[in-house]
Write a protein that binds this DNA or RNA. Sequence first.
DNA 1: CATCTGTTATATTACATATATAACAGATAT
DNA 2: ATATCTGTTATATATGTAATATAACAGATG
Lengths: 131, 131
Amino acid sequence: MLIRIDLQSDEPIYVQLFNQIVEGIASGALRPGETLPSVRSLAADLGINLHTVGKAYTQLRQEGYIQIHRQKGALVQPGPMPEADGEFFGKLEKRLRPLVAEAICRGVDERRFCEVCGRLYRQFGKGGVGA
Amino acid sequence: MLIRIDLQSDEPIYVQLFNQIVEGIASGALRPGETLPSVRSLAADLGINLHTVGKAYTQLRQEGYIQIHRQKGALVQPGPMPEADGEFFGKLEKRLRPLVAEAICRGVDERRFCEVCGRLYRQFGKGGVGA
DNA sequence: CATCTGTTATATTACATATATAACAGATAT
DNA sequence: ATATCTGTTATATATGTAATATAACAGATG
């Protein structure tokens, strides 16, 4: 799977990495049980520090998207993905609220807003975990 | 309009302020042309520094949500709100993408995702700018 | 003229990000 | 066994952002 890091972005590198791996799982580019590159090799490929990769991996593990076996490496969660519990929906609403507020201010109604969401859902395709 | 700042949040104070003012406009709690508190008085009310408020105001002005008259103070954009152009939708997609990806991983389908968006739309009510 | 407005400037503190190096502990392959 | 791979821990450093503190400025208002 191709990963691109924008060093000029205001988004931290480890967050870019976290998001792109989650997006890879969602799209099916990364399949359950698939192994991820080691922190050292991925860091070398991307030209960044291994601790930056480690930070992304640790966060991915904390949220249940990957497993890390101390001496074998990291792999995409082979079992059930973390469930969408109340905590998840709470955080989702919290992150969604400012986006909806800005959209409303600009006259974007619910229908158009959901069209954008729908386009994103279709972008990730039917091959992913949620299919 | 009531504003609450969480000093423990990982979200910067000026971002919290920015978001809550935009949400106030979206909900109708802040009406076009309405004056906002001065940077000094709002900072004193919230127990924070006036530069932190100034940073939020400057950003709100840059995005077109408020006007700032150098000696009269700040007021909610009385004319047309900033339009939802291609740039806006581009940024919206960029911020929405990781949320959608996480939702897909957790088995949340498009329908349920849009239900959350719809609930937020209804939270802001019919009194706002977009009504 | 005093007082209000946002703005600019300077300095300082605290924290997050990212890097660099080194070492450790466990598993694996030779 | 020994070298090599894994994530992990530890320490140190550099950089940038966030937030604060003070002070001053320029324009409008009472």
